[in-house]
């Protein structure tokens, strides 16, 4: 299994090497795409994680026990393509290339596998059609 997640670290787990355990104990192949710490609040890590399905489940259990929030990226970003006018303004800020123009029909394409969750497109969309969905923390 290979998927992109945003891990949300509450302040109380800042003293534990959680990513180390994911790699070492649960054999996750981790590619860190983005990391940020909000002062006094939480740390956020965007990772692409690959593991076999059994390790994957065990790793998720571990994160749950450690009270780390897990947001799968593909369920986070929601684009209302029905109302989209395909102006392309969002593609200009999407440096990962997840949002791009299909140059035959000049329509927006969104490839979630390339998204790094930078959220710039949300601010860029002049019709405000791109939204974050906060309801999908896998740890409930």
């Amino acid at each position: 299994m290979k998927e992109r997640f945003i891990l949300g670290f509450p302040p109380e787990c800042s003293d534990r090497p959680i990513t180390y355990h994911l790699i070492k104990d649960y054999r996750f192949k981790v590619n860190i795409l983005r990391a940020e710490i909000t002062p006094g609040k939480e740390g956020r890590l965007l990772i692409e994680a690959e593991a076999d399905s059994k390790d994957f489940e065990r790793g998720m259990d571990f994160l749950r026990r450690e009270r780390v929030l897990v947001y799968p990226l593909k369920r986070r970003l929601n684009i209302d393509l029905e109302r989209c006018i395909h102006c392309g303004i969002c593609t200009a800020v999407c440096i990962s290339g997840a949002l791009d123009m299909e140059r035959r029909n000049w329509q927006i394409t969104f490839n979630v596998a390339q998204c790094v969750g930078c959220e710039l497109c949300i601010k860029a969309c002049p019709l405000r059609l791109i939204q974050l969905n906060f309801l999908n923390n896998l740890n409930g």
Binding site: I85, H86, C87, G88, I89, C90, T91, A92, V93, C94, I95, G97, D100, M101, R103, N105, W106, Q107
Partner: peptide, 25 residues
């Protein structure tokens, strides 16, 4: 510009439109 990137100072830079060619067509 419409190709999706241009080169400035030997660096490839992403381009993006502001007008909708889709609706203009």
């Amino acid at each position: 510009l419409k190709s999706g990137s241009i080169v400035i100072n030997n660096r490839k830079i992403k381009t993006g439109p502001l007008s909708s060619i889709y609706v203009a067509r």
